[in-house]
């Protein structure tokens, strides 16, 4: 705002600044390389997904989407996201809160642990649950005896998804909350607010854009996760198949239209996420600029 030390990013100015020494042709070549690369590796595949999906016309596209097993895969994906995203929202906020606002022993360890799912291959994440709840494990048979199915059922898929998508919300919030410090919360408490009121009225509004951003990324990953889910799902058609798994099955059965039709939904989700993310970044960036140094 009025703070003179905040410099806003100005692309026009950037292009004419004296720091740029490359000649015009050199710049054109660099930009061309970037665009060609993006077109080849990102835009082209996306176009192919949609063109293959509609290869036999819109009617076939719709028919393949309304197939029973496909509908069931879509439904399962939505259920899994609807359970794991709110869970990770709560876990993520709690972890970020603890790491950003308190000093305690083992904080560095907890911070590292939050990142663990990013550094572990999703297949391993899935295998962990197989080892934990499988027929050879201690827990598996006991749970089975009590009528609780974890592996090759919805709970297993949810667990694997929660594990894989855990870092998104927490990672987004930790730097934000660290930067904001504890001053606002202390002010709220000194004014008589309870801990819960301070969180609800002060902390949450301060992190809402960052939180939304994290949830968006978390959701995109929850719906698109393949590796971890593939290990625990068992690929039972109409029962434990999520959308990414269903795409693979259809493709392996040479049902290209069906596979790409489902893939187009996932691609669509990615596009929507990207647009929302861009909008949020604009909004959220402005908010940070307005409140910095305040």
């Amino acid at each position: 705002m009025a703070d003179p030390h905040i410099e806003t990013y100005d692309p026009e100015h950037e292009a004419t600044s004296a720091a740029i020494t490359e000649s015009r042709p050199a710049r054109a070549v660099l930009m061309a390389i970037a665009f060609v690369f993006l077109a080849l590796f990102l835009v082209l595949p996306l176009v192919i997904v949609f063109s293959q999906a509609f290869a036999k016309g819109a009617a076939t596209y719709l028919t393949s989407l309304s197939d029973g097993d496909t509908l069931s895969a879509i439904k399962l994906t939505l259920i899994v996201a609807a359970i794991s995203v709110p869970l990770n929202l709560v876990f993520g906020v709690a972890a970020a809160w603890a790491i950003a606002k308190f000093e305690f022993k083992g904080k560095a360890f907890l911070t590292t642990l939050v990142d663990l799912p990013f550094s572990v291959s999703p297949v391993i994440s899935g295998l962990v649950y197989v080892l934990l709840f499988g027929a050879q494990s201690v827990l598996g048979p006991w749970l089975k005896a009590h009528g609780i199915e974890i592996l090759f059922a919805v709970p297993g898929i949810v667990l694997a998804t929660v594990f894989v998508t855990f870092p998104f919300v927490a990672r987004e919030l930790i730097p934000l909350m660290q930067e904001q410090g504890t001053g606002d919360e202390e002010a709220a408490l000194s004014l008589g607010a309870s801990g819960w009121q301070a969180f609800w009225y002060v902390t949450l509004p301060n992190i809402k854009w960052g939180l939304l951003y994290g949830v968006l990324l978390c959701n995109a990953r929850a719906m698109g996760e393949f590796g971890a889910v593939s290990v625990v799902s068992g690929h039972i058609r109409g029962q434990t198949n999520t959308m990414p798994l269903h795409v693979e099955i259809l493709y392996n059965e040479y049902n290209a239209v069906g596979a790409f039709a489902v893939a187009s939904l996932l691609a669509g989700l990615a596009l929507v996420t990207l647009v929302l993310k861009t909008v949020l970044e604009m909004r959220y960036g402005a908010e940070i600029a307005a409140t910095r140094g305040h």
Partner: peptide, 23 residues
């Protein structure tokens, strides 16, 4: 507080009224 710690998402009136509102 030294750096005011005003609630940035609230208006001036809501900031001042906060202590009464949370009673």
């Amino acid at each position: 507080f030294q750096h005011y710690a005003l609630f940035r998402h609230m208006t001036v009136a809501d900031n001042i009224g906060f202590g009464l509102k949370v009673r």
